[in-house]
Design a protein around this nucleic acid. Structure first.
Length: 298
DNA sequence: AGCGGTCAAGTTGAT
DNA sequence: ATCAACTTGACCGCT
């Protein structure tokens, strides 16, 4: 079965994830900061369960968890350990409830750390902070039973072979909770599937195939070929990404995402596969609903 | 109640 | 040299 995935937030369904800013928190004494952060984390854990319930009710098979589910978790000044929060027990229990729920109803959960997590950087401090962030997301992934932490390969720095070497070396140092979930996704600027497939094969890391990115940054491989080759990198259900260009393929910037998925952008050969396809469309759950209908009426 | 300005982080490429 | 884009809104603080 094909499983569609919702990314992070809702367009209409009233479930919200809360966050704060370091600047705002800075005005409060430490105890008050922890109290506020605790409240946000507790809210987000409960919101995650509601999000998963929505997925079950609407036959959405997968949910991507926002990187800020624990706000400012690894911030240099405002960062914290979960045990420092007044409601830490309740928070962890609520996340574990999410894990039990997703297992019971087979809702897959994933993480997609944002663009600041870069394992190919020549700057050791960037690497250090990236690993810190991955460790944090792996901690939550353990609670909620998420099986994917998906990142991009990062920058090129004028020398792609060297950047790829650094990427591979860094991945080798990762802790097991991160390593066993880590996946690499082709991006729309620097790393196409043909760059990543050998890396994924060598490190035995799955490749998340984003067909929209591939169409923006092409190599000499076809969609059919990359579909087959990336499938081979998975030891579990493969995860792919789909989106459509906001202003069409002829526009000056086709990288921008549309509110919905144009069914013509959905690779037909994916329809028969047992895969998860995360839907990167701004209309969120509405876009998934429409895509489900469009697929059905093919 | 509504709205504008702001928000941790890195890298690239368009202007 | 600056800035938007990247998975994207939510938040505060002003009116």
């Amino acid at each position: 079965m094909l499983r569609l995935g919702l990314c992070c937030v809702f367009k209409e369904h009233p479930v919200k994830f809360r966050k704060t800013t370091a600047k705002y928190l800075a005005q409060f004494p430490d105890e008050e900061r922890k109290k506020r952060l605790s409240g946000l984390c507790a809210n987000n854990a409960k919101s995650l369960l509601k999000a998963l319930e929505f997925c079950r009710e609407n036959k959405i098979g997968s949910f991507r968890i926002n990187s800020q589910i624990l706000p400012l978790k690894t911030h240099p000044e405002m960062g914290y350990d979960i045990s420092e929060l007044p409601d830490s027990d309740e928070i962890v229990n609520d996340f574990k409830s999410c894990g039990a729920f997703s297992q019971k109803y087979d809702i897959r959960t994933t993480f997609h750390p944002d663009q600041f997590v870069i394992l190919s950087s020549p700057n050791p401090d960037v690497i250090r902070k990236s690993i810190q962030d991955l460790d944090y997301q792996a901690q939550v992934a353990e609670w909620v039973n998420a099986d994917v932490i998906n990142i991009h390969a990062g920058g090129v720095y004028g020398d792609k072979p060297s950047a790829v070497l650094r990427l591979m070396k860094t991945i080798d140092t990762l802790a097991e909770p991160v390593r066993k979930r880590l996946t690499l996704e082709n991006d729309d600027r620097s790393y196409s599937p043909i760059d990543l497939l050998p890396v994924c094969a060598k490190l035995e890391i799955p490749m998340v195939y984003d067909v929209h990115h591939h169409r923006c940054l092409q190599d000499n491989l076809s969609v059919e070929e990359v579909t087959i080759e990336s499938m081979k990198t998975w030891d579990r259900e493969p995860l792919f990404h789909i989106s459509s260009p906001k202003d069409g393929w002829g526009s000056s910037n086709p990288r921008k995402h549309h509110d919905y998925i144009n069914i013509n952008d959905f690779p037909k050969e994916w329809l028969a596969l047992d895969i998860t396809v995360e839907v990167e469309a701004k209309a969120k759950e509405l876009a998934i609903k429409k895509l489900m209908q469009d697929i059905k009426s093919l």
